[in-house]
């Protein structure tokens, strides 16, 4: 396995160097190979504790982290947010005090407010793994996306990926576009003006239609989940129109099939909104692989980070 000076926390993709990204990605490979064996567990984090703290509902990401931690032999505790005093208005700093007192080695946190993992990281000796904060970042998603894409294209230079959908409210779009850009992949976005913010970085060039997308010849199409629950206003007139304008319908799927374009999605998928049912069986869909790789990548991250616990 490759060596790299460990970090305490993983909060975003921006702050990672290319070498650090390479390190996490290359170490995810051996972890993935482990999954083929009958015994999928290694003793790397035996005796270490991982606290899982999800302020926002999530099954996929929290399970993925839990499986990853288990396979590294760590003990995982779920701090149940919905039933704890947190929902009763306990201040965030007081919660952090409590968490600190539990002396976990790793804290996996998802929070609806951007910057909370960074705040937690500042106040705890545990390694903090950002599992999604506000619209800000979802770094393990980005790492698993890059890992998945690179399995198909070992040489990433000059490859192209288009991200389709709600960029404005998407931490996945922010982190995933950033990692691809760092790895030399060209990134474009497609979506209505109401969901593609002006304040995005310049490297995210905007395409205006699926025709443009096909003219641009991407190697993969990355569909974002249309997060109806996140939107506090009307950003587009309705599901039907969204599907017509930006969804992956049969016609568009046909073009992708002809060209062998890969399909990615962070899940969970809204069938009939961003993708047609038919696309779910698409042979070049990487959606299932993304999930599997998520575990390997999260193992690699847990393996790399080094908490400051036990150093008092």
């Amino acid at each position: 396995m490759s060596k790299m000076k460990p970090r305490k926390d993983l909060l975003d993709i921006e702050s990672l160097s290319l070498e650090e990204i390479e390190h996490v990605l290359s170490n995810a490979g051996p972890f993935k190979e482990l999954f083929q064996r009958s015994v999928k567990k290694v003793p790397t984090l035996r005796g270490k504790t991982v606290l899982s703290l999800f302020y926002e509902a999530s099954t996929r990401t929290s399970s993925s982290f839990e499986v990853a931690a288990n396979r590294l032999s760590a003990d995982v505790t779920n701090f149940s947010v919905s039933t704890s005093s947190i929902t009763k208005g306990e201040s965030l700093l007081d919660t952090i005090e409590t968490l600190q007192a539990m002396r976990s080695d790793y804290i996996v946190i998802r929070h609806q407010s951007a910057g909370v993992p960074a705040l937690l990281a500042k106040h705890t000796r545990a390694s903090v793994l950002n599992a999604g904060d506000g619209f800000h970042a979802h770094p393990t998603q980005a790492l698993l996306d890059a890992f998945t894409f690179r399995e198909k294209f070992p040489d990433l230079k000059g490859k192209k990926i288009v991200i389709v959908g709600d960029i404005l409210h998407s931490r996945v779009a922010r982190s995933t576009s950033t990692i691809f850009q760092k790895l030399g992949v060209e990134v474009a976005v497609l979506g209505p003006s109401s969901l593609v913010p002006e304040g995005r970085p310049e490297f995210m060039q905007r395409l205006s239609s699926w025709e443009d997308v096909f003219d641009w010849k991407p190697d993969a199409v990355y569909l974002l989940r249309v997060q109806l629950e996140r939107q506090n206003g009307q950003f587009f007139p309705g599901i039907a129109e969204y599907h017509r304008m930006y969804g992956l319908n049969s016609e568009r799927l046909k073009v992708m099939r002809e060209r062998g374009t890969y399909l990615m999605h962070p899940g969970p998928v809204n069938r009939g909104v961003e993708v047609t049912d038919e696309a779910m069986g698409y042979e070049k869909s990487l959606i299932g692989t993304q999930v599997e790789n998520g575990i390997a990548v999260r193992m690699s991250v847990l393996h790399w980070l080094k908490p400051k616990t036990g150093m008092e």
Partner: peptide
């Protein structure tokens, strides 16, 4: 303004905060 907590633009995008 809705729930905006920072100027809408580059900073709100970068920090992932409502603008």
């Amino acid at each position: 303004t809705r729930g905006g907590v920072i100027n809408e633009g580059r900073a709100s995008y970068r920090l992932g905060l409502p603008g």
